[in-house]
C-alpha cells in the first residue's frame, strides 16, 4: 500500500469529495429500484423485469436441443403417491364422449383416447419439477408428442417450417398453456394417459394430459381438450399471472 505525505487541508478536501461522490452514487441503486417499481406491468410482471425474462428465454432456448434430456430414473424409484397441486380446469364434469380438438393450419379434426392408444406407447420416469421448488420422481406413460404430430401430419406450416407454438386448453377453457414447438417435439414430451402403469386419476388429468419434462410442471396441462398450432404466442394461465412464459428447465 502506497504512503503519501499531504496537508490536513488536502485530506479534508479529499474526504469531503469522496463522501459526496458516495452519497450521489448511492442514488443510482435507489433510482433504479424506483424506476423498475414504477414501471407498468406486462402480464403482472414489471416491464423491465419481463424484458430480462424474455432475454433469458432467447438466450437459453437456443441451448435446448433434442439431445438435452431430463435425467431418467428407474420405475422402482418413482413415487407411489404423486403430488397433486392444481385443479384449475378440472372442475366441470367430463363429457361422456371425450374427444380432443386438434387444429393445425387448415386441418381441423377430433381424436379419441383410443386413437392415441393405437400409437406406440412411451413411458418415462423423470423428476417432475414444480415452479414452487418441490420435485418428485414420477412415472408416466402415453404417446410421444412428436409421434402424435407425425402420425396426423400436423404442426407443419409449410414444407420446411413448423408452427412456432402449440396452444393447449382444458375442455372448459379454464386452464391453458402455450409451449414453444421445439420443446413440444422434444423426445421426452408425451401426451400421457397412464400414471404408474394405470389409467390417470381425475386429479392428475384423466383421461389425457401433457407431460413435458423440459418445463416446470405448470406447463404439463391436465385434461387436454384442445391442441392448436400457431405462430402467435398462445395465452398462458400462469404467465399471465406474472410467471415466466418460457418456464424452461
Amino acid at each position: 500500500m502506497k504512503e503519501e505525505l499531504t496537508s490536513n487541508q488536502a485530506i479534508r478536501r479529499k474526504t469531503i469529495k469522496a463522501f459526496l461522490g458516495f452519497g450521489v452514487a448511492s442514488f443510482v441503486p435507489v433510482g433504479v429500484w424506483k424506476w423498475i417499481n414504477s414501471s407498468p406491468y406486462v402480464n403482472n410482471t414489471l416491464a423491465p423485469l419481463r424484458k430480462v425474462l424474455e432475454f433469458n428465454e432467447k438466450l437459453t432456448a437456443k441451448m435446448l436441443s433434442n439431445s438435452h434430456l431430463a435425467p431418467i430414473f428407474s420405475k422402482s424409484q418413482a413415487e407411489r403417491k404423486v403430488r397433486f397441486n392444481g385443479a384449475v380446469g378440472l372442475q366441470s364434469p367430463l363429457e361422456e364422449d371425450y374427444k380432443v380438438k386438434v387444429e393445425s393450419g387448415e386441418k381441423k379434426f377430433e381424436i379419441t383416447i383410443n386413437d392415441l392408444k393405437a400409437l406406440p406407447k412411451q413411458e418415462i420416469v423423470f423428476e417432475f419439477k414444480c415452479i414452487e421448488g418441490w420435485s418428485q420422481i414420477q412415472h408416466w406413460g402415453g404417446v410421444r408428442f412428436v409421434d402424435f404430430m407425425n402420425h396426423y401430419q400436423i404442426g407443419q406450416k409449410d414444407a420446411e417450417n413448423l408452427f412456432e407454438y402449440v396452444a393447449m386448453e382444458t375442455p372448459d377453457g379454464q386452464y391453458y398453456v402455450g409451449v414453444d414447438t421445439p420443446s413440444a417435439v422434444h423426445p421426452q414430451t408425451i401426451l400421457a394417459y397412464e400414471m404408474n402403469g394405470k389409467p390417470l386419476l381425475k386429479k392428475h388429468g384423466s383421461p389425457l394430459r401433457l407431460i413435458i419434462p423440459v418445463k416446470y410442471g405448470y406447463k404439463s396441462l391436465k385434461r387436454v381438450g384442445v391442441i392448436k398450432f400457431s405462430d402467435e404466442r398462445p395465452k398462458d394461465y400462469w404467465a399471465s399471472l406474472g410467471y415466466d412464459y418460457f418456464a424452461g428447465l
Binding site: M63, A70, P71, E127, S135, V214, G248, L249
Partner: peptide
C-alpha cells in the same frame, strides 16, 4: 436449467441437493 445443464446438476448431487 437442470435439463439443459443436467451434467452440472448431477455433479452437484442432483436437483434437490443443488437447491
Amino acid at each position: 436449467r437442470p435439463v439443459q445443464i443436467s451434467w452440472l446438476t448431477s455433479i452437484l448431487g442432483g436437483y434437490k441437493a443443488a437447491r
